[in-house]
């Protein structure tokens, strides 16, 4: 059965209720409020709303229970949460506290496909010790100090993603040609399509279409921009 997507807040409630209901005390309003760091009155209001959606069973001053539908949703969120945390700690090598914080934020938006493929990547690395070793060495080089963002050759800019030209690393007449066609630093550029045989590519720049070979595009450095064209 497909469950409608709930708000991040509602998902947090269900996940907390699931975790507390597995303890001997059960899930109680006060404990939920403490876990989520909110006022008990807020919790009461939220629980009423969840009850109306048929996700929880709730009587004032008693333990809060999950309906079968509520349990299913809660299990899913909790599954995503731990899968993300495993990926963040084992594959990316983050400290547990950082991984927990990041997982809490990502669990609501990561689609099942994202989570599944992250898991596959982790499995893949575990199954290939040689690659895992290389990866472990490589990940040590990143300290989280570099400015975020992606910079690459124009040939690597995926179709539909916009980039800003940072530099035109070409010499002589080709550089002259490129800049006079409007490929100058600071201009927005996007790859419109790749030729059926894989080369050349067609880009959009300054409101018109320009084609170039991948080898030529590779020497134009671009910074990727968010959003799709």
């Amino acid at each position: 059965m497909k469950v409608e997507r709930l708000s991040a807040k509602a998902e947090d409630y269900l996940e907390t209720i699931l975790r507390l209901s597995e303890t001997p005390r059960g899930a109680r309003t006060g404990d939920i409020a403490a876990e989520l760091n909110v006022q008990p009155s807020t919790v009461s209001a939220a629980l009423r709303s969840l009850m109306e959606q048929g996700l929880v069973d709730y009587t004032p001053y008693g333990a809060v229970g999950l309906t079968p539908k509520g349990r299913q949703v809660a299990e899913e969120i909790s599954g995503r949460h731990v899968a993300l945390r495993r990926f963040l700690t084992e594959t990316l090598g983050l400290p547990p506290e950082d991984a927990e914080v990041a997982a809490c934020g990502m669990e609501h938006d990561a689609t099942p496909l994202v989570v599944e493929r992250m898991g596959l990547l982790g499995d893949f690395l575990r199954d290939h010790p040689g690659m895992l070793a290389k990866w472990l060495a490589l990940r040590e080089t990143a300290k989280g100090e570099r400015a975020p963002g992606v910079e690459s050759g124009l040939d690597e800019l995926p179709p539909g993603v916009r980039g800003v030209v940072m530099a035109v690393d070409v010499e002589g007449s080709l550089r002259k040609r490129l800049v006079e066609m409007g490929v100058t630093p600071g201009v927005l550029i996007a790859v419109e399509r790749v030729a059926p045989l894989g080369d050349p590519i067609a880009v959009e720049v300054r409101g018109y279409r320009l084609s170039m070979r991948k080898a030529e595009a590779a020497r134009i450095r671009v910074k990727w921009r968010p959003g799709l064209v």
Binding site: L174, R177, L178, M181, Y208, R209, L210, M212, R213, E216
Partner: peptide, 9 residues
């Protein structure tokens, strides 16, 4: 020759 060429509308 480079293939930097306009694809006209």
């Amino acid at each position: 020759a480079p293939f930097v060429m306009e694809l006209p509308p």
